[in-house]
């Protein structure tokens, strides 16, 4: 059983299922991404996971605690950053963090340390009503981390942030995960997700279409890396040699670039084959199958 266990989750609104028999086990210590087009059921799934709504059917447990019967104990282990996070305009940053620290039995001083860490140290005595969108988002991340919960649920964590802010969040996610925190992330920005996640789940119209590592999903869809090798004087002979290599599925000459579609294991053998055929390699790039390709394939209508 994983640290988050979702079994047969169903949520219907007026008879229409927003989430239809979704089951997921999130392993302790992994970075798990939930993906899907708008309306796929991501927010509904996350809300069900946190007890914000009552499922029509199914059972959810967090860290072994059943969400329905032991909700308080279950939620004690989770830090949540909702998509459009909002706070109380009349409270200062410091007072806000103190409030949430108390609710999680954490030290109030940790609240101040976290504000420093997300770059709000100089603004902690200003009212949150005066914060910019980016500042509110950073406060959101600080609040999620208070009390050092073992699980973080982040819904669109980089929304409202500039590129530097997004980069900082990704670094933070990596660092927290290295320290053992399980991260459940939902995002539209596939490039960011691809960079940090171990496994992904893809929802479409309330159904779970796929759940696996990006490598496994690419293999399932027969998506392969493409090597683009720039040679000084390409020849048909070189292309033929490369074609012979085990694991190569396609070779194409485009100008002075040889494009090779192959398995990951074949890559070094291709270089050898090319050089043996007299090829003078000038440049070498690999295009790995992207999460975007996987996503688009699984969410076709």
């Amino acid at each position: 059983m994983g640290i988050i266990d979702i079994k047969g989750l169903v949520k219907r609104y007026n008879g229409t299922p927003a989430v239809n028999e979704v089951s997921m086990e999130i392993e302790q210590g992994e970075v798990f991404a939930l993906l899907g087009p708008n309306g796929a059921g991501k927010t509904t799934t996350i809300k069900a996971m946190l007890g914000l709504l009552t499922p029509t059917a199914g059972a959810i447990s967090i860290g072994g605690y059943d969400l329905e019967g032991q909700g308080k104990m279950a939620r004690r282990q989770v830090g949540y950053l909702p998509e459009k996070v909002a706070f109380y305009d009349n409270l200062t940053g410091r007072q806000t963090m103190a409030f949430y620290a108390e609710l999680r039995d954490a030290d109030v001083s940790q609240g101040e340390a976290l504000l420093d860490m997300v770059g709000l140290g100089g603004d902690m005595d200003k009212k949150v009503g005066a914060y910019s969108k980016g500042m509110v988002q950073r406060l959101g991340l600080a609040q999620a981390m208070i009390g050092d919960p073992p699980i973080l649920v982040l819904d669109e964590p980089t929304s409202g942030l500039d590129p530097r802010g997004s980069w900082q969040i990704r670094q933070k996610i990596k660092k927290l995960n290295e320290q053992g925190t399980t991260i459940f992330i939902s995002s539209h920005i596939l490039s960011e997700v691809q960079a940090v996640s171990h496994r992904v789940a893809i929802l479409h119209h309330g159904d779970l279409m796929a759940l696996d590592t990006l490598d496994n999903l690419s293999e399932r869809l027969d998506l392969q890396p493409v090597l683009k090798i720039q040679v000084r004087e390409p020849s048909g002979e070189m292309a033929e040699q490369v074609r012979q290599v085990d694991g190569v599925s396609n070779v194409r000459l485009a100008g002075n670039t040889i494009e090779v579609r192959c398995t990951t294991e074949a890559k070094p053998h291709i270089v050898n084959a090319l050089e043996a055929a007299g090829g003078d390699i000038v440049d070498f790039t690999t295009e790995e199958p992207s999460l975007e390709e996987v996503f688009l394939r699984f969410t076709e209508d």
Binding site: G51, G71, K72, V78, Y80, P82, K84, L103, R104
Partner: peptide, 12 residues
């Protein structure tokens, strides 16, 4: 939106 956040905390 602050209620969604509050309800995610360990509080009845």
């Amino acid at each position: 939106g602050s209620l969604q956040l509050l309800l995610s905390y360990p509080v009845h």
